[in-house]
Amino acid sequence: MLKPVVLPKNAFKLFFQSLKGLGTVYAPVKVSEKSYSFKEVHSPEEIAFEALRTILPPKKFFYPQEETLIRYKNGDFEEVQPEKKFQVIFGVHPCDLASLGILDTIFSSEPADSHYLKRREQSLLVGLSCMPDKHCFCNAMNADTAGSAYDLFLTDTGEEYFIEIRSAKGVELIKSLAEKVSDANPENHEAYKEFWKKREAAFSHGLETENLRSLLDLEWENQIWDEMGKRCLSCGNCTPVCPTCYCFDLVDIAGLNAKEGERVRQWDSCQFVGFAQVNGDFNFRATPADRLKFWYRHKLHGFDDAYGFKTCVGCGRCTESCPAGIDDIVQVVKILQGKKENKHYEP
């Protein structure tokens, strides 16, 4: 592995050109007063470096909202391959990198998901450091450092970027910039450490997570679920914005002549009423409260058994995007822990 290097900010344009040389570059772009979205960018000026969380997480590049898996025609069918296209995702924060690491594990577990993995293979992830706001709790979920899913990770140390290199693709790219980057010196290392110390101190949530596993089991009948259920709209907003939610439906979309059509995968949500419904109209999660607590359990405990990790990375998107204003994981967990009083649940 290459030693970390330093790129002066005034050379970022060249760095960006190298990224563009690899394929289509996507980065956070400001799309309204308060929101950001990963979009294709053609120049560094378009990038919103200040963006904290985008509306949708970067999973959309590897696991699109809708994709065709199989096409059938005239009594036969064939697999549809994902488009051959190299994607560079710039500005991915630690929580989102952690989430991609989680999705990598899930989609590569047997039988592996060829569509996701092919898209991941044709990609380069460039991470970028960030400063938490009041909804961030990635540090409580062990998702506050670069993790394993990146190729390059940029820490903003003021005048320059301190770049960690993790993959062969990352090494190649840095080599092509040899004239502009320099090996990180002790001073750069100091600035790097300084930044991460400052960042650690900036978290304000005060969430403790060591007992989540038993907490979610023991508090399964806590009245907070019913109180939240009464206000939950079952809109399902919390799931597409979640960087690790990946549940899907498989549907056939037939052509007008019914002789040809496609088998399509679409994002689904466990918050929709029919998600756990089976034949005979039996529903294992019939009420919004049932579905909400299922989702909480799944995020904070659910994959401990199946994969050995939790699937919440503390990005705060669900809290920010909940139209009912109830989906505040930090506050809910504190109430379950008895560290905060539940006065008819008001986060």
């Binding site: 899930i106 989609f107 577990s109 039988p111 998901d113 990946y246 549940c247 899907f248 439906d249 498989l250 689904d268 466990c270 998600f275 756990a276 419904q277 089976v278 034949n279 039996f282 294992f284 199946a306």
Partner: peptide
């Protein structure tokens, strides 16, 4: 009885 939509431990249903 569950609605096993994918059959391979992925879709979540």
């Amino acid at each position: 009885e569950r609605h096993m939509k994918c059959g391979i431990g992925k879709c979540g249903h």
